[in-house]
Design a protein around this nucleic acid. Structure first.
Lengths: 190, 190
DNA sequence: GTCTATATCTGGATAGAC
DNA sequence: GTCTATCCAGATATAGAC
């Protein structure tokens, strides 16, 4: 199921990442994790304190990966508008939803400061990075001078997160694309 | 806990609606529903076939209520922009999230066509109603002629749904408001 | 219609052998 | 480090009494 070179601890984290993405925290049981990782109970409780501790390791890894992907796309060459466009149009597994954002709908994640922290940090960092790009475009005159960069960045992130909701509700990625195109049309420089 | 005039079946549905909102489908147990409704096992299995059947009744009721609220706000007097603004700014329990949209992150809801159907129908209907308003504004010249009404409507709904994600991640409704203000700034007629 | 009793399975964790 | 055995509570449902 995983590369033979992967340690048991790593297999446990990877299985947990997948299951958190597919089923969320409350929907993921230790048993399911162990089966997917082909590991026994003993291994899990040797490497991690329990379900929450393992989930925290998994969430951190996913959060770091997503932050890196976003930073990378937004640092590519191009005008501010083009970079935001690239962020919005980057390839996504739309129907699976956002592996970080979906955790905000999980009651046990929201109830735990430790589990929520990496989720909050990831979204805040991407939003800030987007705000920097918007501000740059504003200074250059590509965007209207009276726009608030932080607010536009929030709208961009929200459109992405909400796009997943639309897509999953309708069972089709088209709904995500429609929202993104709508936002880009409003943002497009004249 | 509920009005004494409320039937056992109604109490069960209301309890389920609350719990689905707070914890989602996978996070809600029949036991928790029964405790909140002050009902016994027998009542639940007499009135409903099981957890899924009860959840379906609860989701339908919530979906109908949300559709009615949206239609009502969007039908108020005012220019198209003002009506969209009213929809975006209407009072919301932001940190609790959207009782319909949150269900799209629930694996068991998405896996069941029966449970997903009312979620899909609600979002599609609100989006269509918004598209009609946008189209009206476009015809009147309040919005740019080259905008696609359906796409703008998708962006509006996505911003709301994604706004809940931002708010819950940060633990503050301010993040929702920022996204909404950003979108309104982009949409605002000159 | 509602109650209690019961059944079976899973959730989440511990204990101790190897 | 990993395994198996075991634990107790909860999830979901059925049976049958009242």
């Amino acid at each position: 199921m995983y590369s033979a070179a992967m340690s048991t601890a790593d297999r446990l984290v990877e299985s947990t990442r997948e299951l958190l993405w597919e089923r969320g925290y409350v929907g993921t049981s230790p048993k399911a994790i162990l089966e997917r990782a082909a590991a026994g109970q003993g291994s899990m409780y040797h490497h991690f304190k329990g379900k929450q501790d393992l989930a925290l390791a998994a969430i951190r890894r996913t959060a770091d990966e997503m932050t890196a992907t976003a930073e990378s796309v937004l640092s590519r060459p191009g005008t501010p508008y083009e970079r935001i466009e690239a962020y919005l149009l980057r390839e996504r597994d739309v129907l699976r939803g956002c592996p970080v954002g979906r955790l905000t709908m999980d009651p046990d994640v929201i109830a735990s400061d430790a589990l929520r922290a990496p989720v909050d940090a990831t979204i805040a960092r991407i939003r800030q990075r987007l705000a920097d790009v918007v501000e740059e475009g504003r200074q250059q005159g590509q965007f209207a001078a009276d726009l608030d960069a932080e607010e536009i960045a929030s709208a961009v992130v929200a459109t992405v997160q909400g796009g997943y909701v639309l897509a999953r509700a309708s069972g089709s990625p088209a709904a995500f694309d429609a929202g993104v195109r709508g936002l880009l049309a409003l943002l497009r420089p004249a």
